[in-house]
Write a protein that binds this DNA or RNA. Sequence first.
DNA 1: ATTTTTTTTTAGATTTACCTAAAAATAAAA
DNA 2: TTTTATTTTTAGGTAAATCTAAAAAAAAAT
Lengths: 220, 220
Amino acid sequence: MQSFTEENYLKIIYHLAESSNNVQTNAIAEQMQTKPASVTDMIKKLADKGYVDYVKYQGVTLTEKGKNAAIDIVRKHRLWEVFLVDKLNFKWDEVHDVAEELEHIKSETLIERLDEFLGFPKSDPHGDPIPDKNGRFAKTHFTKLIDLQVGDGGTITGVSQHSSAFLKLLEKLGLTLGKQIQINDVTDFDGSVEILVADKQINISREVAKHILISSNGKN
Amino acid sequence: MQSFTEENYLKIIYHLAESSNNVQTNAIAEQMQTKPASVTDMIKKLADKGYVDYVKYQGVTLTEKGKNAAIDIVRKHRLWEVFLVDKLNFKWDEVHDVAEELEHIKSETLIERLDEFLGFPKSDPHGDPIPDKNGRFAKTHFTKLIDLQVGDGGTITGVSQHSSAFLKLLEKLGLTLGKQIQINDVTDFDGSVEILVADKQINISREVAKHILISSNGKN
DNA sequence: ATTTTTTTTTAGATTTACCTAAAAATAAAA
DNA sequence: TTTTATTTTTAGGTAAATCTAAAAAAAAAT
């Protein structure tokens, strides 16, 4: 199996691969908070072990093996997040760092029992889908709030930013998972969005609107 | 704070210190499954950091700081064991290795919430006491079954061996925590012990009897 | 009180994941 | 199409935790 560090690389490559198939050295370095030179070293190692396909100067892609390993880590991470929120009363902005550690505990039995204990949840506290033990999960294709038109409405079903600062803000604004929203207006000046939530009209910046995911219930 | 490895050293030194105040290099090496030379290196580091007092060739003793750090790890380990058994239906012989990993997760909040979630348990699945968040716990002074006399009786309240093989054997023999036992005879030939449990008479070897802890309910 | 055995330490290497500085390849701009 | 800028890699080095082999100290046996 992989080391703690290797697992983190795999996970990050997996996430980066969601937006651009070929993952670049610099992008990995930024996410790993390390230097590109270190990434090159690790990439070679991961390639040797068969987790990634690597062509010099061309970035990496995960192999099937690498993808499975990454999904397994994602599964663990998200299950632990559910545990922390559902059972230990953590708030959704408090779980990330702890789950980041828990995800590396190596025991299949542990994770399967945990999954069962939690009632086989389908998504984590941020709305991200939890892969089952075979690595399968429903592909969610939510719309970013920023991409909705005036008059559109929907339900908040996810976020694409897990920082504590962002999540706390959403909490304060009442923009939590499951809430119904509707777009009232888009401000010309700064592109900020006026939305209706729980009968209240609030204004959120473009930056915030970018990271809120909506399952749309049709136009108008 | 300490690294994963440093924590393991501290924990092992703490356990070894329970039987002999001055802990020797070789003893640590054996427990850590490493070589004495490596232990010497690590001891120096722990001494530099103020976790142990160390005099060359004289072994080590934990400082107050070292003892507190060790107790903290023991607390985590035992709480996780309770979690695994009580919530995830692990058996008492299956928890050790996983708890060995979980004990290194660094989050005070996590442990306090877990403690609360479990109902502030006082002992783990093997009968070992769980320190509270201030590191305090009742000193248990159980008698080893092997030290009882014919006619003595009591309740099984702990074990001093956590290997899966040993615990599985006890399970099979019905010698689990809380069971009442009585000493019927000690075999001259091999020192094995005949005991009465749940109205059945069974024979256990000296080796087994050494590792069963009894809270005695008075002689005869 | 020596000798022998055991325990512990030193010295010098190895591995993993990281670093800096400089070179090489690729991409973008003039 | 050169030049410039960006990205990536190489080369050589560091720190943590380990190792082996050999030396030194302490303990046990004669």
